[in-house]
Amino acid sequence: MTNFDFSKSALRTIDLEAKAIASLSQSITEDFLNACQLILNCQGRVIVTGMGKSGHIGNKMAATFASTGTPCSFVHPGEASHGDMGMITSKDIVIALSNSGEVQEVVSIIPLLKRMGVKLISITSKNDSTLAQASDFHLNNQVTQEACPLNLAPTSSTTATLVLGDALAIALMEARGFSADDFAFSHPGGSLGKKLLLKVSQIMATGDQIPKVCLGDSFTDALLEMSAKGKGMTCVVDAQDQLVGIYTDGDLRRSIAQNISFHESLIDEVMHAAPSTISMETLAAQALFQMEEKSITSLICVDSDQNIAGIIHLHDLIRAGVA
């Protein structure tokens, strides 16, 4: 066993599963389009069911549907026969997963679904299976070979089913116009929630923390303000406290290269007159994107009247878990 080529085995598995995914383009048939439309028009929920490995894939599929705008739950087919059929209503749509299309626990609930008038979508590898034939729409996930060297353990087939489920979920997500705000509503926790929900106004420096000098102030005054506030920049305002410019660490390096006198120059002479700003109501994730796009480390935050409301620095985004 010490001489076993693990890399060769792993690469073989990846190759076989990649081929299984590539072949799924043949599954985007009229039935796939009709299944999408059926789910899009659903007045109830989507119910995913499957046994064994298909059940594990079904659980993930249901979670993906639910988090991308399609109300969805997983119902175990074995439990459905012992009371959980009560979780399914006539307005729901069932997506049943079974590689063979003959799994007893799944097949046994088909008559009950038909009696309720529930629409049935199946994902199997056999078009002539009991489940496929009983379905309103059938999606074929047939693969040439499982990654398992015995061609027995569900590997390539479960991967194909998972990807086909993702294809359904994302097609529906796009058709609904599901937005980042919608996504944030169902993902309020953790770092993902922070990226989607946190606004600039919640983490920006405000009040006396804002580095600020006035037109006519000396170059030295500006450097002292930058050093005191530690934001790597200072705003420049006019007599009415309106933003007219910015001076940054980058500008300082350029000033040194140009031999500009610290003691004789005014901030007016060296400031940058077109500072990058961002609305204080903007998502913090957008602030990060803007910084990366412009290769800068801080932004001036403004209110609805374009007055200076605060400063957001890359370090603020890192501390908040956004970057």
Rank of each mutant, 00 (worst) to 15 (best):
A160M: 04
T161R: 01
L162N: 02
L162P: 04
G165M: 06
A167G: 02
L168C: 03
A171Y: 04
A171N: 03
M173K: 08
M173L: 14
M173Q: 12
M173T: 13
E174L: 10
R176A: 09
G177A: 05
G177S: 09
F178S: 05
D182V: 13
F183I: 12
H187G: 13
H187L: 14
G189T: 14
G190H: 00
S191I: 09
L192T: 09
G193M: 12
G193E: 14
K195L: 02
L196H: 10
L197R: 15
L197H: 14
L198F: 00
L198V: 01
K199C: 01
V200A: 01
V200I: 07
V200T: 10
V200H: 03
S201I: 08
S201P: 00
A205K: 14
T206N: 05
G207C: 12
G207M: 12
Q209F: 11
P211D: 00
K212T: 14
C214A: 09
L215Q: 08
D217N: 15
F219W: 06
T220M: 14
A222E: 01
L223K: 04
L224E: 05
L224N: 04
L224T: 05
L224W: 01
L224A: 11
S227E: 10
A228V: 00
A228P: 00
K229V: 05
C235L: 08
C235F: 06
A239S: 14
A239K: 13
A239W: 09
Q240Y: 11
Q240N: 15
